Lab assay of single mutants.
Amino acid sequence: EDYYQILGVPRNASQKEIKKAYYQLAKKYHPDTNKDDPKAKEKFSQLAEAYEVLSDEVKRKQYDA
């Protein structure tokens, strides 16, 4: 799945936009606030993985290549 789609940001998003999108979605899908939703944990880990790659310039360049 596309990391940009997961975070809901365009491919040319700035680091600030990526961070903002991640924090909004992380708050929304955090397992502690969605105890009754088994998919929230999965969504949250996808968000974390996408953010880890896109927030790191080197990893992001490799991902975009």
Results as ranks from 00 to 15, higher is better:
36 D>N: 08
64 D>Y: 02
7 L>E: 00
23 Y>E: 15
22 Y>I: 01
4 Y>A: 01
52 E>L: 10
43 K>T: 08
50 A>T: 02
46 Q>N: 09
9 V>C: 06
20 K>P: 01
42 E>H: 08
1 E>T: 13
13 A>Y: 01
47 L>M: 08
15 Q>Y: 11
11 R>Y: 07
13 A>T: 04
21 A>D: 01
6 I>R: 11
50 A>M: 03
39 K>A: 15
1 E>C: 10
61 K>I: 07
40 A>E: 06
23 Y>T: 13
8 G>K: 09
32 D>M: 08
37 D>E: 05
62 Q>M: 09
14 S>M: 07
21 A>Y: 03
15 Q>H: 09
60 R>Y: 01
37 D>N: 08
31 P>I: 05
42 E>I: 07
3 Y>R: 02
28 K>E: 10
52 E>M: 09
10 P>R: 10
55 S>M: 06
40 A>H: 06
17 E>C: 09
65 A>M: 14
50 A>N: 00
40 A>C: 08
19 K>V: 15
34 N>Q: 09
17 E>W: 10
40 A>D: 06
5 Q>A: 13
18 I>F: 02
41 K>S: 13
47 L>W: 03
41 K>Y: 15
57 E>L: 10
12 N>M: 08
60 R>D: 02
17 E>A: 11
5 Q>N: 11
10 P>W: 05
38 P>R: 06
14 S>P: 08
29 Y>P: 02
46 Q>S: 06
64 D>G: 03
39 K>V: 14
59 K>V: 04
34 N>H: 11
30 H>V: 05
13 A>E: 01
49 E>C: 07
40 A>R: 05
56 D>A: 02
6 I>Q: 05
1 E>R: 15
55 S>Y: 07
8 G>S: 06
10 P>Q: 12
14 S>F: 04
40 A>G: 05
28 K>F: 10
16 K>T: 11
36 D>T: 07
18 I>N: 00
45 S>C: 10
59 K>H: 04
1 E>H: 15
32 D>W: 03
61 K>F: 09
32 D>S: 11
59 K>L: 12
27 K>Q: 11
61 K>V: 08
65 A>N: 08
62 Q>H: 14
63 Y>K: 01
20 K>I: 14
33 T>I: 12
32 D>H: 10
31 P>H: 09
19 K>S: 13
44 F>G: 04
7 L>Y: 00
34 N>Y: 05
10 P>A: 13
45 S>P: 03
42 E>M: 08
16 K>G: 12
2 D>W: 04
